[in-house]
Amino acid sequence: MADHAAHDGHKLAIFRGTLKFKSNTQKIWGVLIFLSLITIVEVALGYIKPDFLNGKIIGLKLLNWIFIILTLVKAYYITWDFMHMRDETSGLRRSVVWTSVFLIIYLMVILLVEGEYIYQVYKNAAVSFDF
């Protein structure tokens, strides 16, 4: 807290302290540039769809994993720097973030596994579903 807390009580360093800003306004513009870069990378990848990213890892294409990870990175910086979660106490941070992360992963895993199972049932059933 002590070393990178500057004026206004805002923590002004991102990327685990590697990039330090002089003021809160500067940090906001820095984060905007970073978020824009990620979005540009996402759109470029979605447009080109490189063939070498078609391999599957745990049921999803590598390209889709990249999209999801980039999305989570964006979500992190929106929450931490735009919503100032970085400056809140660890108690508030954990009660909001841990709760949502746990419940979201739980629901997603259950529903996606179930959806895939029903697809297999449709596909391999004795009755044709494509007519």
């Binding site: 909001v96 949502s100 979201i104 629901l107 997603m108 996606l112 959806g115 029903i118 697809y119």
Partner: peptide
């Protein structure tokens, strides 16, 4: 937090249907 979980419910249902009708 609660609104995020509402949207999670919708997007999870979307994911379920998408995997079902991939």
């Amino acid at each position: 937090l609660s609104d995020a979980l509402t949207f999670t419910g919708f997007l999870a249902a979307y994911g379920f249907s998408r995997f079902k009708f991939i």
